[in-house]
Amino acid sequence: MIKMYGIKNCDTIKKAQKFLINHQVDFEFIDLRDNPINKTKLQTFVDKLTWEKLINKRSTTFRNLNNKEKNNITLELVLKNPTLIKRPVLVMNNNDIMVGFSEKSYLKIC
């Protein structure tokens, strides 16, 4: 089963969920606020995606970081501020990871 990580009130999460439901793709949603990811899982995301792809630089949380933090993203910083993670993060059955939502990308998993 696909795991979708995000925050339930995020508009992009809602679009992604609607798309998967409409295409009859089973997924489990994990809210990063209710069920924070652990350091090991976050490190897996970073290893597969890199910080550049994983961090949402348009988020209010990122904009509120000081310059030192913006230039030195760490596991601890992201674990304390899960809204820094671009949403959604999809982890497929084969452990491939996708971040963000685009219909074109999502059609590949349908």
Rank of each mutant, 00 (worst) to 15 (best):
K15S: 10
L20A: 09
L90E: 11
V89Q: 00
I2A: 07
N66T: 09
Y5L: 05
L90W: 01
K53V: 12
K108W: 04
I2F: 07
F27G: 09
T44A: 15
V25S: 07
Q17C: 02
S105D: 06
L54H: 08
R58C: 06
K80T: 14
I109L: 02
N22C: 09
K68N: 15
Q24C: 12
M1L: 10
Q17K: 08
I13G: 09
E76D: 14
D47Y: 06
M4H: 00
E69T: 05
T12R: 13
L32A: 04
K70S: 07
K3I: 15
F45E: 08
F29R: 01
D34Q: 04
N95W: 15
K15L: 07
N72M: 01
L65R: 04
L65Q: 05
I7V: 00
K41P: 10
E69P: 03
A16E: 05
Q17F: 04
D11N: 14
T60A: 01
L49S: 13
K86D: 08
T60Q: 08
T12D: 13
L49G: 12
I13N: 02
D34F: 04
K53F: 13
K57R: 07
P82A: 13
T40E: 11
I37G: 00
K80C: 14
C110T: 06
K70I: 02
L42Y: 08
K104S: 02
S59R: 00
K104Y: 05
W51A: 06
F62G: 02
I73N: 06
L32P: 02
I85M: 08
L77C: 08
D96C: 10
N81L: 12
K41N: 12
F29Q: 06
T50S: 10
M98R: 14
K70L: 09
N95R: 08
S105E: 12
P88Q: 15
M92T: 14
K80D: 15
N56G: 07
F19A: 03
N67P: 12
K3T: 14
K53A: 13
F45G: 06
V89Y: 06
V89S: 00
K48R: 14
F62H: 04
K14N: 01
L49C: 12
L65D: 07
S59Y: 00
L75F: 09
S59W: 01
T61H: 02
A16M: 08
I97D: 10
F27N: 03
N64Y: 15
G100D: 11
I13D: 03
D26F: 12
G100W: 02
V99Q: 02
N56L: 04
T74W: 03
F29K: 05
D11W: 05
G100E: 12
E103Q: 09
D47R: 01
N95I: 13
D31C: 01
C110F: 01
L75S: 06
H23A: 06
